[in-house]
Computed example of a mutant assay.
Amino acid sequence: MNIVLTGSVGHIGKPLAQMLIKKGHSVTIISSSTERQSEIEALGAKAAIGLFEDVEFLTAAFTGADIVYLMKPPIDFFDQNSDEEAFWVKIAKNYVQAVLKSGVTKIVELSSIGGHTATGVGMLGAHHLVEQVLGELPGNVSIKTMRPVGFYYNMMAFMPAIKNAGAIFQNYGGDEPEPWVSPLDIAETIAEEMEAPFNGRSVRYIASEDVSPNEVAVVLGAAIGKPDLKWVAITNEQFFGNLMKVGFSEQAAKGLTEMNVSRVNGVLYEDYYKHPLILGKVKLADFAKEFATIYHNKF
């Protein structure tokens, strides 16, 4: 099949492209950076360099594709003028125009846990808005919505506090397990879905392992040689204040704080547990090795 991937060669895009190419598919990777072109072509994929804001570019890139994989460009949490919801909704509307003009009828969209609602999940509510925009496409366009849970590599953000204060500080914690996922498992699941039949609209959650905050501290601590590492739950106000001190925009700090609150009150996972789930292959212990390598190289 001819498959077009947005998202360049990041944590998910690169392994996804490698998997699809290995399976014999023709892959085009869209990137906004000319510097990525050689890396994309080295994978055996075709590079399409342009901007997500350019509908005509997207249309040309999508034309002739059997399947298009849609993901949203990352947001800079430190940009004081950024508006995540407005930016992503604009990109989603561009995707809709490009899909309609190109005639694509099969889409795999990368959404997120929390995508089931626009309220009560903090910054993740923006994913729901994007799902709604794409959902306005005509019925002949099949959409597979992928909702991965929290990424292991988001734990990289714990490193400065571990180094400087000897602990992990978040506005949630304890012994209640919650799901985490590896980008490799996300890529494998998406590749699997691309080769499965498309029929209407569907939602699939993706997770690798359920582990509690306290278990995370134990596993990461052991990996980096800090067996006494603790996960410390702080107040929402303290957490928000810490984010503001390191330069987060107010919108991003508020959104992340509220997202973590939804972990505790159950809103974040209320739809997740209604769906059947097969956990992926990559476990926290596997990620901890990567975490330790980066931690020791950085500090």
Rank of each mutant, 00 (worst) to 15 (best):
I49V: 15
M156I: 12
M259G: 05
A92V: 01
E41D: 09
I91P: 06
D76M: 03
M155Q: 13
M123L: 15
Q37H: 00
S32L: 06
Y153E: 14
G114K: 07
T119I: 13
A61W: 08
G139I: 03
E258V: 07
K93H: 09
S249C: 07
T63F: 03
E258D: 15
G115V: 05
E35D: 11
R201N: 10
L51S: 15
T59Y: 05
K23I: 06
G24S: 06
L58C: 11
Y205K: 03
K144S: 14
S249A: 04
W88A: 07
I234A: 06
K22A: 15
L243R: 09
N199R: 12
E188I: 07
G200F: 01
E39I: 04
Y172D: 03
M194P: 11
I29P: 01
A217C: 11
A223W: 02
L279F: 12
S26K: 14
L51G: 12
A191Q: 05
V232K: 06
V68K: 04
P73V: 10
T105P: 06
Y295E: 01
S208H: 01
A167M: 09
K46M: 08
N297I: 06
V27S: 04
E193Y: 07
F158W: 12
Q37W: 00
A48E: 11
L220Y: 08
G44W: 02
M259P: 04
T235W: 04
R263G: 08
E237H: 08
H296I: 01
P179F: 00
I168Y: 04
E215D: 13
S112M: 07
I294P: 00
